[in-house]
Every structure is written in structure tokens, then in C-alpha cells.
């Protein structure tokens, strides 16, 4: 297998738990809400996870803290620092996920070195045994994904891929073929962090994705308010909300603050769903 040939996704494979859940919700007319949390960030992070699920999350993205989060802005960097200071390890987060016992699909978001260090097979199996449905590895692009994707597929862990505003059409097609669960539409060029206003790029990216796949499409990076979530969902199937939630936790909020913010987003999305 040449590293320069994009991997052809086998779309004939059986849809996984994440894709099935999101498709069912979409087909029922709902907009998808996927909050992001940093695993192990505080003593009560498991309660926060349960609270966002109770408040109406359709799936939850759980970050494994990393020392050098290249795709993240200051808020999530701070969450990484706090989690690591507490001695959080990847397996520790997975043990907590098991203990949380939530009903919605969990998507682990991790930088590639944590996967590489553990070994592709071992990480894929650890995720599967923790009941994790899917993984997002933002610094593992299509051209380099082969060894991981093989093990993830074998362990039935869905690998969600990102499409960026800069991705040209032929890359969009190849990425959508290989993405599992849903396609992550990057709302703007840049790292994670709240934005006062969204640029117009999200709609363009979603449009390009729609031309090549009927997988659910969720938009992330910068979505900060219920109004922005609603705006994005006029074209997309759902939103991923990270920094806006994590900031509330960094500023001292706990399960209640997290739950009420997610409930606000849920209410806003349900009004248009």
C-alpha cells in the first residue's frame, strides 16, 4: 500500500453504532448536538459527561489530554494542562467512560502520538472495550491513515474524518468515502476556540460534502452560541460544540452549568429541527 494513494473506503461495510444513531435521529427530524469534553479535566468530569447527556447530547466527543494540542486554542489547551496535571492517562479516561455508563455514542478525540505510542491495535481494542464508538484523530490525514484505519475497522471503531474549507473537491470525495460515523465539516480555517461571528465558509464546506455522501454532516470549530448552532444547522445535520462548553468548566462551572448550556443549545436546535 502506498502512502500517497488515498485509502478507498469500503462504504459497503455495516454502519457502526455512531452512524446508525445519528442517521436515526436525523431521519426522525432532529438536529444533532455533539458536545466536546476534555477527559479527566476535573474530579467531577464524569458527572459533567452524564449531565450533558441528560441535557440532550446525541453523542459526546471526549478528548484524551495531550501535551502538544496543535489544533486547539487557549481554552482547550488549558483543559489539557489541567487534565495532565491531575495525572490523567488515556486508559484512565477510558475507565471513567466505562464508569459513566452513558447511553449515547462516545467519540474519542485524540492526537495521533497517543495512538502511535500505544500501538494501533492496542488503542483500537482499548477504545472498543471501553464501549467507545468512534475516534477523531485530527493530525492523522487521509494519506497517513492506513495502519490506524485497518485496526479501527477491525475493532469496529468508526474513524470520523474532517473536511476543511481548503480541501479541494477530489480530496473531499476521498475523505467522505473513508469517513465513518459522520463527516466533520471544519467551519473555518483555524484552531478550536469561540468566535463572535461565523464566516460563510461552513455552508460552502457542507455543500461540498453533501455532493458526495449522504453520511450525516456535523459542523465544528468555533460554534459558540445557540444562535450560531441554529445558523449552521440550516445547512448541516448537526453541530459540535467544544470551547464554549469547556470554557464554562475552566471558569469553574460544573455539571449544572454544563447541563444548562447544553439544554439551551438543545432547545434552540429542537425549535428548528
Amino acid at each position: 500500500m502506498s502512502a500517497t494513494t488515498p485509502i478507498e473506503g469500503d462504504r459497503a461495510s455495516v454502519p457502526g453504532a455512531l452512524e446508525t444513531t445519528l442517521r436515526d435521529r436525523r431521519d426522525a427530524g432532529a438536529k444533532l448536538l455533539v458536545p466536546y469534553l476534555m477527559g479527566g479535566m476535573s474530579n467531577d468530569w464524569v458527572q459533567v459527561l452524564q449531565a450533558v447527556v441528560a441535557a440532550g447530547a446525541d453523542a459526546v466527543e471526549v478528548g484524551l489530554p495531550f501535551s502538544d494540542p496543535m489544533m486547539d486554542g487557549p481554552v482547550i489547551q488549558e483543559a489539557d494542562v489541567r487534565a495532565l496535571r491531575r495525572g490523567t492517562t488515556p486508559q484512565g479516561v477510558l475507565d471513567d467512560v466505562i464508569a459513566a455508563g452513558v447511553e449515547v455514542p462516545i467519540i474519542v478525540m485524540t492526537y495521533y502520538n497517543l495512538v502511535f505510542r500505544a500501538g494501533h491495535r492496542r488503542m483500537a481494542r482499548s477504545l472498543a472495550s471501553a464501549g467507545v464508538a468512534a475516534a477523531i484523530v485530527p493530525d492523522l490525514p487521509l494519506e497517513e491513515i492506513g495502519p490506524w484505519a485497518e485496526e479501527a475497522d477491525a475493532a469496529s471503531v468508526e474513524t470520523v474524518l474532517m473536511v476543511a474549507p481548503a480541501s479541494p473537491p477530489e480530496r473531499v470525495r476521498a475523505i467522505c468515502r473513508r469517513s465513518r460515523g459522520f463527516v466533520y465539516a471544519v467551519a473555518q480555517m483555524g484552531v478550536t476556540g469561540e468566535r463572535a461571528a461565523l464566516g460563510g465558509e461552513a455552508a460552502t464546506v457542507v455543500g461540498r460534502i453533501r455532493q458526495t455522501t449522504d453520511l450525516p454532516v456535523c459542523v465544528g470549530i468555533g460554534i459558540s452560541t445557540p444562535a450560531q448552532a441554529v445558523e449552521v444547522c440550516s445547512v448541516a445535520d448537526g453541530v459540535i460544540v467544544g470551547s464554549a462548553l469547556v470554557r464554562r468548566l475552566v471558569e469553574g462551572g460544573g455539571p449544572e452549568a454544563a447541563g444548562s448550556f447544553i439544554a439551551e443549545l438543545r432547545t434552540a436546535l429542537d425549535a428548528v429541527g
Binding site: P138, D139, P141, L142, S167
Partner: peptide, 11 residues
Amino acid sequence: GRFVPESLMPA
């Protein structure tokens, strides 16, 4: 290799 987010791949 080239282990960068999709946003940087085209560049």
C-alpha cells in the same frame, strides 16, 4: 511523512 490536520494538507 506528513501528519497535519486536513486544513494544512493542501498547503
